[in-house]
Design a protein around this nucleic acid. Structure first.
Lengths: 205, 205
DNA sequence: AATAAATCGTGAAATTTGTAACGATTGCAT
DNA sequence: ATGCAATCGTTACAAATTTCACGATTTATT
């Protein structure tokens, strides 16, 4: 089977999100044209993306919403629950712990870690905060899939090292620092300053 | 002058972030090789990116850190202060208001808006929360550059419409919904669920 | 039943993005 | 001074991504 690119997968997740709202609205079928109108992409790209996953559409009609959702989910979200561990229970970390959309999805934060003794032992939105030292054990025991870094930049690399040591293969990094990790580990950097500045630059030139 | 792509600009902002830490560490010069090691990119890409901005390096030596910083800033961050307005003072919105890295940079949140009467009038980290209806006036008066959407998905489009109406040309959207805006408006979507799921998918296939 | 309209899937073309190769320049050691 | 190692900037090349064009299929209409 052909390997599916990272960008295609990101779009597939966007299609899934869109399909869920279409289902809520009671729609049975949707065309590539309409998906394009909603998502802001082009119809060709949507057809091409979906064709990566199999022949699921009907010419003259479009895609069956429920069927397309199932096909996309089977490929990009085979697992029932994806477990995450959060490092850093500060403002941003707490906001992530309380992020409501995770509840409706397969994403679940199973543990939080912090250095601050005052935070350790507390429970935030049902998730307990542990001392950082306990991370490897807890991550292994809970079969955590994704590590989230929401600590200050000067601690970012140390946390990343600990994640790698604990066997994590996927990291989402909100700390404004470049992480050094083995090639087998995927990192997604989200530096809020860079995100804000870059959308602003887009409008300038 | 050649137009610089959006991705190149995002990398330039990453270089800037890196240069700032190098300056803090007292380094005078840096080579493309070392920048590559730090950022995880390749040295070729870094040389190519920088060459877009002019001939700033010295063969055999590398780049003068201060000079490179100045050149990158002049091009991607000509403005002294970039003003932002936040919509939605919930958990995520509050975390953004309290995000410490903005303080050290040119980014400043000048106003927050919310529907909730209990939040209106409060001040969070020095930023006042106004009722949404006041947005157009306040945005115009403060010459806001970027709008941040941190409201629930069902209100996302309404807020986006208001932003467009208020003359904003750059939007960062944390609401998990696709926005419909005129072509002249740049939108950067950050759907936390999609970010987490996509880095997880990267490790799977 | 035949025609028209809508829409998918896909190979080919075009565009964008990233990589490699290498001449040119600089500083250092001898 | 000369040779060597380091490193930039750039042209040519390769790979990835997107767009185009169009045949094939389905539904609706007359």
């Amino acid at each position: 089977m052909k390997k599916i690119s990272s960008r295609t997968i990101a779009r597939a997740l966007l299609y899934l999100r869109t399909l869920e709202t279409l289902i809520r609205d009671g729609k049975d079928t949707v065309s590539s044209r309409e998906l394009a109108r909603i998502t802001g992409l082009t119809d060709v790209q949507i057809r091409k993306d979906i064709s990566n996953f199999g022949k699921v559409g009907t010419p003259g009609v479009g895609y069956n919403v429920a069927e397309l959702k199932k096909v996309l989910e089977d490929i990009v979200l085979a697992k029932k629950v994806i477990r995450m561990a959060l490092f850093g229970a500060g403002h941003l970390g707490t906001a992530i712990l309380k992020y409501p959309a995770f509840g409706k999805q397969k994403l679940r934060i199973v543990a939080a870690f912090d250095r601050d003794k005052r935070k350790i032992g507390r429970t935030i939105n049902g998730v307990k905060v542990y001392p950082v030292e306990k991370a490897p054990e807890i991550i292994r025991k809970n079969r955590v899939d994704i590590g989230i870094i929401a600590v200050p930049p000067e601690s970012g690399q140390k946390v990343a090292d600990l994640m790698v040591l604990s066997g994590l293969k996927a990291i989402v990094n909100f700390a404004p620092v470049s992480l050094n990790v083995p090639g087998a580990v995927s990192v997604r950097d989200i530096d809020l300053s860079i995100e804000f500045l870059s959308v602003y630059c887009d409008t300038q030139k």
